Computed example of a mutant assay.
Amino acid sequence: MNRRIIGAICLVAVLLVTGLAPARAAERPTIKIGWSIYVGFMPLVYMEKSGILKKWGDKYNVDLKVTLVNDYVGSINQFIGGDLDIVTVAGMDGLTMPAAGGVDTTLFMIGDYSNGNDVLLSKKAGSVKELKGQTVDLVQFSVSHYLLQRALVKNGMTGLGDVKTVNISDADIASAYLTSPDVTNVASWKPMTDDMIKGVPGTKVLFTSQEIPGEIMDVFITKTATMKAHPEAIKALAGAWYEALGILSGNDAKAKDMREVMAAGMGTDVAGFESQEATTHFFKTAKEASDFLTAASTKEIWDNIRTFSFEQGLFGQGATSKDDVGISFPDGSVLGNTANVKLRVNDDITALAAAGKL
């Protein structure tokens, strides 16, 4: 399942599980890292194949086991249940699934944000404002739903109440737009939106995630107890990640090889990978990532995310306010309930990487 699908699936009871599920050998722990196929997570494939991950694991005397989970939501549920120690997620999902479900969760590294991968399209409307009163097809409670809300608000409208939304699966949305005259407006993501634009002449791009930089982010999360018990594993993963991103930043033979490996992992060619890479903002240095995690504007982003999440019922039936779930930040400040902090945006390891201390 695509990493962009959240929502209805996260409106289930989750178990509060702390620590690491399997027994660990004290001398060399094994840390299980779950991920699903998405352009922003593909460096993990190269890290494993190239030996970079093993090299950093050896440095910190830890085994980092990377596991591809084909079902994105399933990967988060495995994390919640204790079968995975670390998982890659869209930032909003880290809040609405483990954190809102009661799991004390730490966001310790950001990989990228969508910088045009998520798109609002129309066959007829010439602007976002012209969508008022119209129907928009999308995957309900996904980042596409969030994108639509932000598009409406940023164009002077009140929000989702100005339009009608129809829930449609990610498997069906492209074909519906291409074949059904009744489907005139959609919010979706690449590569499906590329097919829609090519297949329906005159399609207008009304809004993209490039207009909300940083808001649709992809991150690494772990349980706070794991973060405290195994900082060496987090350091090893961060060291490997930024070494790989350093290679991706280049134009030499190693960078070419890395793109070929990642493209193959996605089941596409290099051109297909680069098309999505072009609209994905990778944090290619730890300094840039650290600056983002500690910026005042990042708190504003999380306030937008938690507001949308609460209004859509993604905090669960018992939630009475967007403040019910506390979100803490590197400067010690908290959005929401200080007595119920369940998502911790943590810059400690990224800052070490930025300072060259890993």
Rank of each mutant, 00 (worst) to 15 (best):
T179S: 14
T165D: 05
Q149G: 01
I173Y: 00
D104S: 14
F141T: 13
S175F: 02
K129L: 01
G159L: 04
L178P: 04
P98H: 08
L131K: 03
V103A: 12
Y177P: 00
A176C: 04
N115Y: 07
K123N: 06
Y177A: 03
G126L: 06
G102I: 13
D137E: 10
K190Y: 04
S144D: 13
I86K: 11
Q78K: 15
L84R: 06
T135V: 05
L147G: 06
Q78D: 13
I173N: 04
D182C: 03
S142H: 08
D83A: 14
W189E: 13
G111I: 03
A100P: 15
G116A: 06
D170G: 15
G102R: 11
V128G: 00
K190S: 12
L84N: 03
K190R: 15
A99E: 09
L147E: 02
Q149K: 12
N77I: 06
V103D: 08
N167S: 13
Y113H: 14
N185T: 01
D170H: 14
T96V: 15
N155R: 01
S127H: 01
K132E: 07
F79H: 10
Q134C: 04
N77Q: 15
N117V: 02
V89I: 10
D172V: 07
L138D: 00
G81E: 11
L138F: 02
L148D: 05
M109I: 08
A90C: 09
F141V: 10
G91N: 12
Q134D: 08
I110H: 06
T165Q: 12
S127L: 03
N167D: 15
G133M: 03
S142C: 08
D172F: 04
M157G: 06
A187D: 03
A90W: 13
Y146L: 15
D118V: 00
V128S: 00
S142Q: 09
K154Q: 15
S188L: 12
K129I: 04
L95G: 06
G159S: 08
A151R: 01
G159R: 07
F141S: 14
S169V: 06
S122I: 00
Q78E: 12
D85L: 01
Q134N: 09
G126Y: 01
G156S: 07
I76Q: 14
N115W: 02
L120V: 05
N185W: 03
L152Y: 07
N117L: 09
S114F: 01
F108S: 07
K154H: 12
W189N: 14
L138C: 02
V103H: 12
Q78N: 14
A99K: 09
Y177R: 09
L178H: 06
V103E: 09
V103K: 14
Q140H: 11
